[in-house]
Design a protein around this nucleic acid. Sequence first.
DNA 1: TCATCATATGCTCATATCGGCATGCGTCAA
DNA 2: TTGACGCATGCCGATATGAGCATATGATGA
Lengths: 116, 116
Amino acid sequence: MTHMARAATTSDVFNAIAEPRRREILVLLRAGERPVTELARELGIDQPRASKHLRVLREVGLVRDRKAGKRRLYGLDARGLRPVHEWTGGFERFWSESLDRLDAYVQDLKQEKPEE
Amino acid sequence: MTHMARAATTSDVFNAIAEPRRREILVLLRAGERPVTELARELGIDQPRASKHLRVLREVGLVRDRKAGKRRLYGLDARGLRPVHEWTGGFERFWSESLDRLDAYVQDLKQEKPEE
DNA sequence: TCATCATATGCTCATATCGGCATGCGTCAA
DNA sequence: TTGACGCATGCCGATATGAGCATATGATGA
């Protein structure tokens, strides 16, 4: 406990979607529920890997699963993505409203003028 | 090289913002440029840590820096957040348009698996 | 009960990080 | 030139993962 090292990630949506495969899974699930095997096939990865990614997604609440006979269907529950969308949205004015401001910024850089 | 292990993360925006501190830094920078020392103080962390996080943010292009005399001012360049905002936006209909659909879904769950 | 299909887990290896510290480097002012 | 100041890095320790494989668990139907 002396060294805290990493910050325990897999229980937070931001980290869950930091994994490319997991983002792919979420995208695939927009088309509807699917069993692990099919997802694995569509992603081109083996079943254990797919299951593990799904587990992470389930733990953060981005997917839900339900048994369907011998299989287990995974479905999307995108509500957890809303906070991410809103957080990034908080920066919208910085990328839309100010292309000119960015230009000005670049000008400042060139002039090397101190300010604050 | 037989084992690929992890997928090289810190060169992608999704991973950059998966770190809480880094998100805090971006938020702070919305108020304007700041030198590392000040950011560190505002975050309550030491300077080296702040510098490292800023480095990651710089590498993915979310912040820019410019020398200002003895100091180095870091500024926000949120353009890189736009893709994240748009990606999550692609799931918007799944969290807004269908609260009722979700309810129905939950009902199904309860009926098939009445416990746990 | 048993064979089989569908999934979830357990383990090991190789890495990517993050936190802490100590230290190197560059800039400015006296 | 020298010393203080502001930052960036290097290194080490601890740990979270992800890939790969092998195997345990569950559920189904004969």
